[in-house]
């Protein structure tokens, strides 16, 4: 018999019949490669479990307590930082309103009314300009071309999103296992 089946038996952990075992023994007597595989299997199977020094669980508990302390400290620091950043952001957003604090109520009302009028006029202007642009763009191609483009875009999006969703599900499964 050739070398390969014996090596495959050893590498695949095949459960051998008595005849196969006898053949393997005969082969390993003349094949150093297979003899080394047998030896490696024996050494690996014979290796004992190493155990940690006494008090492992106690050391883990101490580590857990230390970890919790660190997490609590991080949470406190995070809350303080978030509060400071929020206060800073609010102050920054309120900065343009500070000058209004020195105005009289009538002046303040006039300022607000003029601001509202300005915003309304600006919105109206934007609406008119958008309408003109929209009509111009629609007029370039016939409606059938636009419809076809829309259908193509939806189809392409579906093709792109489907594999991403599949990948996302696989990733979520892997994370759940860990």
């Amino acid at each position: 018999m050739e070398h390969q089946p014996f090596e495959d038996w050893l590498l695949n952990d095949k459960h051998l019949t008595p005849d196969e075992r006898r053949n393997l023994n005969r082969h390993t007597a003349i094949c150093p490669q297979c003899a080394a595989l047998v030896q490696a299997n024996l050494v690996l199977r014979a290796a004992p479990m190493t155990r940690p020094a006494n008090g492992f669980a106690l050391r883990f508990q101490r580590r857990l307590v230390a970890e919790r302390k660190i997490q609590r400290r991080r949470a406190v620091i995070g809350t303080i930082l978030l509060t400071l950043v929020s206060i800073g952001l609010i102050l920054w957003l309120l900065t343009p309103l500070f000058p209004y604090l020195s105005l009289s109520p009538t002046q303040l009302l006039m300022t607000w009314v003029s601001a509202l009028v300005y915003i309304a006029a600006a919105l109206q202007a934007v609406g008119i300009v958008s309408e003109v642009i929209f009509r111009f763009v629609l007029g370039i191609f016939p409606p059938s071309v636009w419809l076809l483009s829309l259908v193509s875009a939806v189809g392409l999006s579906a093709l792109l999103v489907a594999p991403l969703r599949k990948q996302g599900k696989h990733k979520a499964y892997s994370q759940a296992r860990l």
Binding site: L11, P32, Q33, A36, L37, Q39, A40, N41, V43
Partner: peptide, 9 residues
Amino acid sequence: RREVARHLA
């Protein structure tokens, strides 16, 4: 396994 066998040999 081949590697282990080779080194142990």
